[in-house]
Amino acid sequence: MEAVINEIKKPENLVYGKTKVLTDNVMHYCPGCSHGVVHKVLSEIIEEMDIQDQTIGVAPVGCSVLIYNYIDIDWQEAAHGRAPALATAMKRLRPDRYIFTYQGDGDLAAIGTAETIHACNRGENIVIIFINNGIYGMTGGQMAPTTIEGMKSSTCPFGREPVHDGNPLKMTELLAQLPGTAYVTRQSVHTAGAVRKTKKAIRKAFEKQKENKGTSVVEVVSTCNSGWKMTPVEANKWMEENMFPFYPLGDIKDV
């Protein structure tokens, strides 16, 4: 078998490898974190579209604040929640560049709700990638606006109760109603099939930006296994059973 394996391991038989847009730095994320998969998908699209020197990302606040160490493109760091405002300025100054923001749910749906909604309502020609794991992962798993009913977090240890804690916010559905958005979709990265679909969705969002159609929002329902206190495999199962009924996957708006 060893001989057969060495026979196959040749450059001409290579079908999948790490893209060159990703740097060699080892990611600081916990084992099984969805951020790594989304970084990879994003890098692959940038490589496929050959826009590495024309893309500028806006890094968020949260675990992925160090995204500029991992994806080898130009980056700007925004204050918490202000990524769409910064991206607006960048796109208006450099309309020839591909501009995207990469934000978590605490960033996009809590502190940055105003910036997000107004950027989408103005129809700024940017791509917003929204990583929704239902909690504030980096600061210790506190309740976020997107925490679903009954979900446990460190600030609602008995599960979220709408009477006491308010209702979870479906940010993507909200943004789909605005006339400025061109493409609004919700995807996930829990299986290989879902990763392929997410890749198609992000690619489509970048194509829309190329055609000056308006704002594209790609929500990725993801896991935070450390914050949820589960193994990566359990977290994916929990997400399928509990998150997907409330956050159904698929395209919400496609103009």
């Binding site: 079908v15 999948y16 080892v26 790594g36």
Partner: peptide
């Protein structure tokens, strides 16, 4: 396996 790997540490060959 390579698609779902968060750390992009799997390279796949096929013949």
């Amino acid at each position: 396996c390579a698609l779902v790997c968060p750390d992009s540490c799997i390279t796949v060959y096929r013949k």
